[in-house]
Design a protein around this nucleic acid. Structure first.
Length: 194
DNA sequence: ACGCGGATGGCCT
DNA sequence: GGCCATCCGCGTA
């Protein structure tokens, strides 16, 4: 779990990367605080042909970094309140990415609790795309950074998650392509195992 | 255990 | 003007 996932990891179909990111560790080190969690839920956004993908509307100021090189962080602001973080996948210029939807907290629990005072349990610190960005302190400042190392925001290799520990279903909170099976979760009973 | 609606702002039509 | 890749609190069972 010390090894950052390299750009070649992300140079694959978004659905494959979404599956393989389960178990990996997202860490934010701002120089003063280190906060991290294990990735337990992801969603794939396939590219311009995927009606639910931000890249379907073309490359705009907002979606600019979704078209960056594989391993880029694409961070966007939603509902006037929340940040969400993606890992860009596939070739540079294509526009596919994986939304990180939930983490299991690993390090920096005190910092997370201070950043999310409304969370009543440790599990609820990071169990949503907006929540995990708040808990880790991820904002627009991280949009466009590389997740592959030498950056405050990094994803590290984690233990393999077997297929029978993965649940696949439709994506959440979208209004187009609502039945595409592109949401990947670690089954609840497996989330705490190494 | 659900289901609903308000908060809140940037961006596209 | 309307639509969001959301979260939280309050209402009814």
């Amino acid at each position: 779990m010390r090894t950052p996932l390299p750009p070649s990891f992300y140079l694959r179909d978004a659905a494959i990367v979404a599956r393989e990111l389960l178990g990996a560790v997202l860490m934010h080190d701002d120089g003063a605080q280190v906060v991290s969690g294990r990735i337990i839920e992801t969603e794939a956004y396939l590219g311009p042909h995927d009606p639910a993908s931000h890249s379907a509307a073309g490359r705009t100021a907002r979606t600019w970094h979704m078209f960056g090189p594989p391993g880029t962080a694409y961070v966007y602001f939603i509902y006037g309140m929340h940040w969400c973080v993606n890992a860009v996948t596939g070739d540079e210029g294509y526009g596919s990415a994986v939304l990180i939807r939930a983490l299991a907290p690993l390090a920096g629990l005190e910092v997370m609790r201070a950043r999310r005072p409304k969370a009543r349990t440790d599990a609820s610190l990071c169990d949503g795309p907006g929540k995990l960005c708040a808990a880790l302190g991820i904002t627009r400042a991280h949009d466009g950074l590389m997740l592959t190392g030498a950056s405050p925001l990094t994803i590290y290799e984690g233990p393999p998650v077997p297929d029978d520990g993965v649940v696949i279903g439709p994506r959440i909170g979208i209004s187009k392509a609502v039945d595409w099976p592109l949401r990947f979760c670690i089954a609840p009973q497996r989330q705490t195992s190494a």
